[in-house]
Every structure is written in structure tokens, then in C-alpha cells.
Design a protein around this nucleic acid. Structure first.
Length: 351
DNA sequence: AAGCTTCTCAACCGCTCGCGC
DNA sequence: TGCGCGAGCGGTTGAGAAGCT
């Protein structure tokens, strides 16, 4: 039958707290504690506020040892690092920063830190547009999917992909022990910083498409979400056609695509199903082709709820080019990169 | 100096989850 | 066992401050 009725929200005062209210709340909690019951607290403390409001005021402002004012560089680093790892889970991030509240950190991120990072990136971009990736060599035997986690991680610094879960495991030889450098047993390596730079140069928007990532589901057998579960995956079937992508004008090639929703069932089993799409989609010229590609797909057995078709309509689509599994040679990959974009093509708008 | 725009951040809203009844 | 409440959380809002023209 539930508990006693909630506080009287109708008559509860809203808006900014007065100093009198603050001292009433502070005095009461310092004397009696919260008693584990915020709803009953305002009445006992003589406040005409909702318990929820009291809780928020106490936690975010009145609580002892709350730090106000500028964040230090060290705190910036911690926030960025944690945001990159776990996304916008502010309470967890706040737990790592004594004296800071989740609300504070959230506000700081949304108003300053995000812009600060962006500005740093743009400064870097003005010096070299975009920052070059280290030399890349094709290593087909390596599943690139294990690297995606890090890409996912750094999408989150743009605030665009906050729902991704950390990878439960990382393939040996892919990440260094300190997880700071991506490295395969080939000479392919680049730092997270370079990826941040790239991602912020072209922040992910609402959706993304991915080339050549046929092994993606393999690394997520624990059922955790991957970025593919949030976007849609395009597998390029005809490598010889795809090779044109590396040419300076190569986007006019007709490609044969396989489109997948890239999802897993509740048991974590991969239920990716690929639907062949006819060749003739011209990705480079017109985003509508991609939209068409997405909207025309119907795949049984996949939960499609997380796909928002409307978002696709009015947003950019992030195209990820996976050089390892796409079968693109380093020369051809360099050809794309030389155009200034290289690793992805935001909205397919190549400049 | 006035009016407009942008920024900041405290507070609210709405949702999920866990627990009491 | 299931309903409903409370705590906690992340997203969003909007008033006031600051900056700009």
C-alpha cells in the first residue's frame, strides 16, 4: 500500500533560497541530521520547501567542505578523463573530486570545460589541420573492434555519445598497459590525444555509420553495448569498388553495401543481421542517400527502439572509416587522410 | 548609457531504481 | 507480490550577471 503521502508540493515554495531559509536548513541538519527522510525534514525544520529542494540545497550548497570557485587543472584532467571513460555520470565523477558536487561539475563541463577543450583543439587545428595520424599500416588479422572502445571514449568528450559502456576487456596487444596508447603488433599507433583532436575537429552528432567493421560484435560477447548498437553499420562488400574512396575524387564510386542495425539480444548473443543494399549509393555527394539507406532498412530480430529516425533527418551522420577491416591499404587510407579528414567524414561533407 | 546578447549556475523536472508497506 | 513512495541522478531551464555593440 505504499508509504505515507509525499510532501505538499502545491504549497511548497520554489525559487532561490533566502539566507534565512539557508540558515534554518543548515541549523536543523547540523543539530539533528537528515534522519534519512528528506520529505519530512522541511516541516521539522520550519521550511515551506519540498524535501527534494532541501536535499538539493544541502548537497549542492550548504553541506560542509563544499568547494566553490574555479576548478584546478588537476580537476580538469580528472573530469575529462572520467568523462571520457564513463560519460556523463556526474555523481561518480563528483565522488572523485572532494568538495565538488555533481551539479557543479555538470555545469562546469557544459559551460566551460567542453568549450575549453574545443578551443584547445581548434588552436591545434589552426596550426595543423587536422593533426596527422601516425603512419598506418594495414593489419587485417587484427580485429579493429577492440579499438573502438577508445574511439567511443573520446566521442564522449564531445558529449555526443554518453551511453556507451566501458569495454569489459581489451584485446592483448591492442592497448598498452596504461591504456593510453593504441598499438597493434603492426606499426599502427596513435595516442588518445590525437583521437580527441580528431573527434573534436568533427564532433559526432546524432548518428554514425561505419565502414568495414564486420567483426564488431565479437568483442562484445558479454552483452554490453557497443557503439554499433547506437548507430548503424555499413559493411562494404566490394573492396575493389571501395578502393576508389582513397582517390581524391573517389567518392563518386558506386558501392555495394551491407547494412546492419548491429545489435545484440538480451543474452548477449550476437544477432547482427546484414541486409544487402544495392550499389549506387553515392555517399560522397549527398547525405540523402545515406538517410535513404538507413530508413529503408528493416531487419528482424533487432531491437530498433534506440534508433531515432527523426534525428537522422536533421542531423549530420558520422561516417567512420575503419581502415583495418575495410581492407583499405595504407596508401589509399593516406589518400583520404590527405584530404584533411582521413579517419571519418562528418556528414559526408568532404572539404 | 542603453539595449541586446551571451554566459553562468542554482534550481527544477522527470525519470529510474530500490525499498517499505 | 505488487503498488507506490522516496532517494538519487542527469538533463534542462531561466533569472541574473557579464560582456558586447
Amino acid at each position: 500500500m505504499g508509504r505515507a503521502p509525499c510532501c505538499d508540493k502545491e504549497n511548497a515554495k520554489k525559487g532561490p533560497w533566502s539566507t534565512e531559509e539557508d540558515s534554518k536548513l543548515k541549523d536543523y541538519i547540523e543539530k539533528y541530521g537528515t534522519g534519512g527522510n528528506w520529505i519530512a525534514l522541511p516541516q521539522k525544520a520550519g521550511l515551506k520547501r519540498c524535501g527534494k529542494s532541501c536535499r538539493l540545497r544541502w548537497l549542492n550548497y550548504l553541506r560542509p567542505n563544499i568547494k566553490h570557485g574555479d576548478f584546478t587543472d588537476e580537476e580538469d584532467k580528472i573530469i575529462c578523463s572520467l568523462f571520457a571513460s564513463i560519460g556523463s555520470r556526474w555523481s561518480i565523477i563528483a565522488a572523485q573530486l572532494p568538495g565538488r558536487t555533481d551539479n557543479d561539475i555538470k555545469n562546469y563541463w557544459n559551460t566551460k570545460l567542453k568549450k575549453k577543450l574545443m578551443a584547445m583543439t581548434m588552436t591545434s587545428q589552426s596550426q595543423r589541420k587536422p593533426p596527422p595520424l601516425p603512419p598506418f599500416h594495414h593489419t587485417p588479422s587484427i580485429s579493429f573492434s577492440s579499438l573502438y572502445k577508445d574511439y567511443t571514449t573520446y566521442y564522449t568528450t564531445t558529449g555526443s555519445f554518453t551511453a556507451f559502456e566501458p569495454m569489459s576487456s581489451v584485446q592483448p596487444g591492442v592497448l598498452n598497459n596504461d591504456n593510453t596508447t593504441l598499438a597493434t603488433n603492426s606499426s599502427f599507433s596513435h595516442t588518445p590525444e590525437s583521437l580527441v583532436s580528431y573527434m573534436q575537429y568533427h564532433p559526432a552528432k546524432e548518428n554514425f555509420l561505419m565502414f568495414g567493421s564486420g567483426e564488431l560484435s565479437c568483442s562484445f560477447s558479454d552483452g554490453s553495448s557497443s557503439q554499433i548498437s547506437y548507430g548503424r553499420e555499413i559493411k562494404q562488400e566490394n573492396i575493389s569498388n571501395f578502393q576508389g574512396l582513397g582517390a581524391s575524387n573517389g567518392y563518386e564510386d558506386n558501392l555495394k553495401f551491407m547494412l546492419s542495425h548491429g545489435c545484440t539480444n538480451t543474452g548477449g548473443e550476437d544477432v547482427n543481421q546484414w541486409t544487402e543494399k544495392p550499389s549506387g549509393y553515392n555517399l560522397g555527394k549527398n547525405l540523402d542517400h545515406v538517410k535513404k539507406l538507413i530508413s529503408s532498412s528493416s531487419i528482424n530480430g533487432c531491437n530498433d527502439n534506440f534508433i531515432d529516425e527523426n534525428k537522422t533527418e536533421d542531423s549530420h551522420v558520422l561516417l567512420l572509416l575503419n581502415p583495418l577491416t575495410a581492407g583499405v591499404t595504407s596508401e589509399r587510407f593516406d589518400g583520404v587522410r590527405a584530404k584533411g579528414e582521413g579517419f571519418w567524414i562528418d556528414g559526408f561533407d568532404i572539404v
